[in-house]
């Protein structure tokens, strides 16, 4: 008898709870656009946060909800995905040029001698909060791989030979996670040229030329030779640092030969043939760099 009552009470309780749940669910039901689910399915599902939302669901919600979706973009899916989403929703597809991440530091182990040894937590963020770094350059890459840890696509890895991270352009989705992770602001998203070509300044040091020369053999000394030689006005020098505007640059490569330290990096292309004697040895290049730095210092 006792058993029966117990079971019955539980059953009644269960039914009552179900009833309450049913009523509450009906009363407070949230109407959700079924298109959100559809759009989410179209998105890559990487949940990388590259669009600025916490995940793909957030972007899908915004894509369906907003009338004007020109400000929204999925860097992973790219133009293709955005077009299919826009077609599905009957809105104008947002356009954005394809980009790739570039590591703007050329201070490899060979070019940038170590001046001290760091044995704290192996994290760029921690090291950067403590001091300038293991070399004489306080702007350069620390090499503990915060960018590698931040990348969801395995597109960036530290090369053990140079100690610098390298981006695999084929895998890079330009989500910008590495850009945010780098405490030294070394990684930049730049326009992606066909065949992965690029010309960029691989240095972010704002130190004066003489200081850069002392710390690193591959740094930009701000001599301004590239600025002068550029026929398109794509290069500007600000606080002792050259910057190439990837929208104005036509990949003519004149600046590459002009740079005395080799801070301007050329990717996926052969350099222009040198007019005078080809710089046979690395020593000749360093000599030229010193001369340029001196000339520049004289001007100041």
């Amino acid at each position: 008898m006792v058993l029966l009552y117990t079971v019955l009470t539980l059953c009644v309780l269960g039914v009552l709870a179900a009833l309450i749940l049913y009523l509450v669910a009906r009363q407070f039901r949230v109407e959700e656009d079924p298109r959100i689910d559809e759009v989410e399915k179209m998105l890559p599902g990487a949940n990388c946060g590259g669009c600025g939302f916490a995940g793909c669901r957030g972007l899908a919600d915004a894509l369906v909800g907003r009338d004007d979706i020109s400000a929204l973009y999925c860097p992973v899916g790219g133009a293709e995905v955005m077009k299919s989403v826009a077609d599905y929703l009957g809105k104008a597809a947002p356009e954005k040029e394809p980009q790739t991440a570039f590591v703007r530091c050329g201070g490899s182990c060979a070019k940038r001698p170590r001046t001290n040894r760091y044995d704290g937590a192996a994290s760029c963020a921690v090291a950067a909060s403590l001091y300038g770094g293991e070399t004489g350059c306080a702007y350069g890459c620390l090499g503990y791989g915060d960018c590698v840890a931040a990348c969801n696509f395995g597109a960036i890895a530290v090369n053990p030979e140079t100690g610098l991270p390298e981006v695999d352009a084929a895998k890079c989705t330009a989500c910008g996670a590495c850009v945010k992770a780098c405490p030294k602001n070394i990684i930049e998203l730049r326009k992606r040229w066909p065949k992965e070509r690029a010309v960029y300044v691989s240095c972010v040091s704002k130190d004066k030329g003489a200081v850069v020369m002392k710390a690193c053999k591959a740094g930009c000394i701000g001599c301004g030779k590239c600025e002068k030689v550029c026929p398109f006005g794509a290069i500007t020098i600000q606080s002792n640092l050259a910057f190439i505007d990837s929208h104005k640059c036509k990949l003519c490569r004149k600046c590459v030969n002009e740079c005395p330290t080799g801070a301007i990096r050329l990717v996926g292309m052969e350099p222009l043939p040198r007019e005078s004697k080809p710089a046979a040895a690395e020593g000749a290049r360093t000599g030229a760099a010193e001369a340029a730095a001196k000339q520049h210092a004289g001007k100041e």
Binding site: T115, N116, L130, Y131, G132, G133, G136, A138, D207, V211
Partner: peptide, 10 residues
């Protein structure tokens, strides 16, 4: 002028 401090920052 800028000079490096103990932490190597100018």
């Amino acid at each position: 002028d800028l000079q490096p401090n103990g932490q190597g920052i100018r």
